[in-house]
Design a protein around this nucleic acid. Structure first.
Lengths: 138, 138
DNA sequence: CATAAATTTATAACGATTCTAAAGTAGAGT
DNA sequence: ACTCTACTTTAGAATCGTTATAAATTTATG
């Protein structure tokens, strides 16, 4: 079974029809060794550069949101204008390099246990996210 | 010395001319007991509701950015469409209530010490921010 | 007052994202 | 294979938050 079929199967099992647009995006996002961060704009440029059959911007948005809802992508917010997505959906944190304006993964195991000593009545914690902003040492 | 003059003085000492627009915004943001979170849209609505002399949206943006640059406000990002500002400029963290879509302060002292066990060459840590997402307990 | 620099303003422009309605496609049943 | 229906893609319009523009106004200074 080749990659295309694996992705098609994965999509189908999530209730998403395996269209050629979705499979092309799957290949770009998941057919690689390391996880990474990207913006919609980055993805659109990647698609443009590897293919002659452009995918409509609306479809890219639809697909990314569908993948996010299915848990294949994480959306990351930083004090920035851009919306980043992350193919690493495991529990982890981030560095944000303010000079390069770049996100860098920070493994859960590299962050000491975080203790929240305050509770909100009727609420439970869904996630704890740490953002470490860094700047050049000079 | 009344509030207006205190704000005028504060503005002047920051190198900002004390215009009536800026003083009005100061009163709304800083003339209160507790710090709070707001969006530009919230602020615009507040201004509309308390006065007949509307302040231009462009001025509101300019003023908020000026205040932020002077360190009187903090900008806060969450996985959300909105940009929030915080009149609490001390070191602290946040809860985000995903049901009410509302930010709640989380004091530094309510978060156990965070140890980052990874370093980036040539970079130093500027800040560590924790975002605790909560949902209804039911 | 007169002047220069800073500020405000309305409006235009912008970029990211969502909406729309029409055309195309995939899967299930025949 | 053929048909039907629901899902998907598409281009372009619309929308939203924000920034830029350029003229009018205001503030600080001499």
């Amino acid at each position: 079974m080749n990659n295309k079929d694996i992705f098609a199967e994965k999509l189908r099992s999530s209730g998403l029809r395996p269209t050629k647009q979705r499979i092309k995006i799957c290949k770009l996002l998941f057919d690689r060794k390391d996880t990474f961060h990207f913006t919609i704009n980055d993805l659109n440029n990647s698609i443009k550069s590897i293919t002659t059959e452009q995918i409509s911007l609306a479809t890219i948005y639809n697909t990314i949101h569908a993948f996010k809802n299915k848990g294949y992508l994480k959306e990351i917010s930083i004090n920035s204008d851009k919306t980043y997505f992350d193919t690493n959906v495991s529990n982890h944190h981030h560095f944000f390099d303010e000079n390069k304006r770049q996100l860098i993964d920070l493994d859960d195991k590299h962050v000491g246990k975080i203790k929240i000593k305050k509770t909100l009545p009727g609420k439970k914690i869904k996630s704890i996210e740490v953002l470490v902003k860094v700047v050049n040492n000079s």
